[in-house]
Write a protein that binds this DNA or RNA. Structure first.
Lengths: 333, 333
DNA sequence: CGCAATCATTGGAACGTTCCATTGTGGCGG
DNA sequence: CCGCCACAATGGAACGTTCCAATGATTGCG
């Protein structure tokens, strides 16, 4: 009992090797009858296609390398699901690498992907990734696209972070808030910068002083900061993302304040837990799954036509008003 | 500018093709000097190893197929991270497939993995997976191991679910509770059965009547059930997992009851958010990352020696007492 | 000093596809 | 009846490694 090859199928069907190969790919060059003949023979023998040989000969692996900066982050998990879903529909399979925000690990996996070989890589760059990484990829001739976190150039897919925090801030302004702080965004990557920037512009445009409460993207840390907030502190918090917002609401509860009533809280991302939260979280929806699907499309396009100018797809976010911003209480300032 | 092959490196270094190949693998059969010579030549030319040819010739891909039942579930995301981490250390790379609990998708991806080919598959079976799947894998001669959700036979790694819910229930009994319900576990898979069973045994052993409050593993749904709980209902809830427990605490809060004071809640898994929760969640810790790492080891062992009896590694859980069970309040029943 | 054993290197087949050029066959127009 | 074309099928090289058997050089030992 050994492996069945196309050669064996061809013999069984009584045709030449290359005919059998064409038939198994369902090539229309062959008569339907011949194709059926071969298909039946393959089924009879239990033939299993060997992709490794095809990859080697054709140079196409139908495999994409996916570098995730932190898969245990629900936002990136959802995004990964979207990427995988869309690539699968297109007949591609995903090689996963979780970098855990380590740029050395990221580098190593990228080199591994280059040998593998993959047809392209989708990168959510680890914090601190030098822009030269893209140049290396270009020189290596590896089709690539960034997701969520990006650089000035190259194919990219991500949410419009600036617009998101601007909407959130303007919503709070419209509710009458004046002392609005930005919570989170300690790490220096493009997402942090852009989200801070949207908030900053909305505040300065309204003639108010922006204020940043720094913390890492961690429920516990955010909770600590919110719990320690003085009574004469901000009346509203624009949070870096939902995890930080969750932390903020927990911290407020711990210090006896009701999120939404005593201090307004708005998150960012609208991860699944946001709607079920107590109080239900007002947040900026960016649909990570959709971003993932779009990113897959952008990369596949790039693979199909590497000469074309890299596409940049920036998805518009929407504000989902729930309870934590206090809008339902008709806040009066 | 075309691809550099071993042949080119050999020419540059002035040795035979097979010598260069051995040198690049750093084989000790060769003199250190020769190896260095070849390494230098490879570096000079910018040689990149082509794994696809190696896979085809050797039949070993150093690739593992990972079937995740639902990657957006934080527990499985963390587990995936553990698997990826351990496999990477062993020089293996992960092909990811998220089945989203669809058995047809699972089947399709498995067939894809068979062609790919992968050296083995790690499966977190989708709910409703027939045990015959393992038989197929065996017949296909694909080394495999199940994770968390398992079957009677075959290599497996997972937590001791029975012991976990038993510990949780006994803890609540020791705190004086008598009306203890089990929340969640609507889906019929091995995990649901085992967790219910641990609770059931502890209750009947104590001479009490077990009660199941059914709901799917979903924060919103669990919140609904908890919110509707009557005043003369259970005083304590053993939850299927942390997500359900989160839902339970939110539902209790919504109906004006304080989790831990009015109704005790215990979760299962100890996902990252559990410690930061309000109130901090008492839960059964199973360390998904460790399970993932262990599962990777079990599969690699199986690949190394397919003839050996499949190993089953059941990890002991620990009870992490925080606030939601009310233990800190010295509950008196 | 000769023969075996060891060491370092070499040559070439093999892995199972894809791809390209070629052959054979039948139909059709001139 | 011949040449031409389209169609269906074929033959064989190529992809870039690994693996194995074989070679030549050097050492060890009786």
């Amino acid at each position: 009992m050994q492996r069945i090859r196309i050669k064996d199928v061809a013999k069984e069907a009584g045709v030449a090797l290359s005919t059998a190969a064409l038939a198994l790919r369902d090539d229309t060059k062959l008569r339907e009858e011949t194709r059926r003949l071969v298909r039946d023979a393959a089924a009879r023998l239990g033939y299993v296609y060997d992709r490794s040989a095809a990859v080697m000969r054709s140079g196409k692996s139908h495999t994409i390398g996916l570098l995730v900066c932190e898969i245990t982050n629900p936002f990136y998990a959802e995004l990964t699901a979207g990427v995988e879903e869309a690539l699968d529909e297109a007949g591609f399979v995903v090689m996963l690498a979780n970098t855990s925000e380590s740029i050395t690990r990221q580098r190593r996996m990228l080199e591994r992907f280059r040998e593998q070989p993959v047809d392209g890589v989708l990168i959510m760059p680890a914090t601190g990734t030098p822009p030269s990484l893209l140049e290396d990829l270009e020189q290596w001739r590896v089709p690539h696209a960034t997701v969520v976190r990006g650089f000035r150039r190259g194919a990219h897919t991500g949410p419009d972070n600036r617009a998101g925090t601007r909407m959130a801030t303007e919503h709070l302004l419209a509710l009458g808030h004046r002392r609005i702080a930005f919570l989170g965004g300690l790490t220096r990557n493009s997402v942090s910068r852009e989200r801070w920037d949207g908030y900053f512009r909305a505040m300065t445009k309204a003639g108010l002083a922006p204020e940043q409460l720094c913390c890492r993207t961690d429920i516990g840390e955010a909770a600590g900061v919110a719990e320690a907030l003085p009574a004469d502190g901000p009346t509203a918090l624009v949070c870096f993302n939902d995890s930080v917002a969750f932390g903020a609401t927990l911290g407020l509860l711990r210090s006896g304040r009701m999120p939404g009533r005593d201090v307004a809280v708005i998150g960012f991302d609208d991860i699944r837990e946001a709607a079920a939260w107590f109080p239900a979280l007002t947040t900026v929806r960016v649909s990570p799954r959709e971003i993932g699907r779009a990113a897959a499309r952008v990369l596949l396009e790039r693979i199909a036509d590497p000469a074309a100018a890299p596409r940049r797809e920036i998805l518009a976010p929407t504000l989902v008003v729930r309870e934590s911003c206090g809008a339902h209480l008709r806040w009066k300032g």
